[in-house]
Design a protein around this nucleic acid. Structure first.
Length: 227
DNA sequence: GCCCAGGAGCCCG
DNA sequence: CGGGCTCATGGG
């Protein structure tokens, strides 16, 4: 029996479709409308918004990121050239609610610079591992952020491993305690079909499940996946 | 007050 | 190359 597949089936039955990643609708740019979930076909601007969100959400609650994205929209800053042009202090101030705003402002400028040389369309055409390495060369983009961008913005078949994912598979003893990012990613990818829709849904379901059973120590108490 | 959130870089042994 | 430190707001 494939436990990874079984867990997916259970989570899907339990929580249903999650529809990550939320994106601001094109009609509401500049307004204060919240990003909505489940947009299937994305514009380049929405893809850039996902890239921005992937950086802003590093070790940060999504709610705080949402506020920052709304502020960026008010100033019409979901735009590579405008991110490049704006002064560091104003950018940092705009994304303040997402925390680590000085580091993240720098990271946003680094990605914008990268995307100037390597436009999203070009990145999409690259071989997956090359695109991944290119993203990892950007300061402020590590394993999870790179994979989030590849999966959620570019619709590439790669599995995102976050702290929650690691906690769950570690507690369930599906991997050893000191398993690396890559080992955990392999566990999922080698047991599932390489379908971005499944990887997208699965990661979101793991986050939802972890919020309920793995957000405070001791982790995994009464977790139904134990069975 | 304390812990935690959809991490990453850097430094040090 | 692994472990500890730093970055920071906002909610429970």
């Amino acid at each position: 029996m494939n436990k990874i597949q079984q867990i997916y089936d259970y989570l899907m039955k339990e929580y249903g479709h999650q529809g990550w990643w939320p994106v601001t609708p094109l009609c509401c740019r500049g307004g204060k409308t919240l990003p909505i979930y489940g947009v299937a076909i994305k514009s380049d601007k929405q893809k850039f918004e996902i890239i921005i969100g992937a950086i802003l959400t590093q070790n940060t609650a999504w709610k705080n990121v949402e506020k920052a994205i709304i502020e960026l929209n008010k100033k019409d800053l979901i735009d590579i050239n405008k991110i490049l042009k704006i002064k560091h202090n104003e950018l940092a101030e705009t994304i303040k609610s997402s925390g680590y705003y000085n580091q993240k402002a720098k990271s946003l400028k680094s990605v914008a610079e990268f995307l100037k040389k390597t436009p999203i369309a070009k990145l999409e055409k690259m071989e997956l591992s090359k695109a991944r390495h290119a993203l990892l060369d950007v300061k402020g983009i590590g394993n999870e952020t790179a994979d989030s961008i590849l999966l959620y913005a570019l619709n590439k078949p790669i599995f995102v491993v976050d702290a929650y994912t690691k906690r769950i598979v570690t507690e369930l003893k599906l991997v050893k305690k000191d398993a690396t990012y890559h080992e955990i990613q392999e566990l999922f990818m080698s047991n599932l079909q390489a379908d971005p829709k499944i990887f997208n849904e699965y990661h979101a379901l793991l986050v939802e499940h972890a919020k309920r059973f793995y957000s405070r120590k001791p982790y995994g108490v009464n977790c139904p996946l134990e069975n």
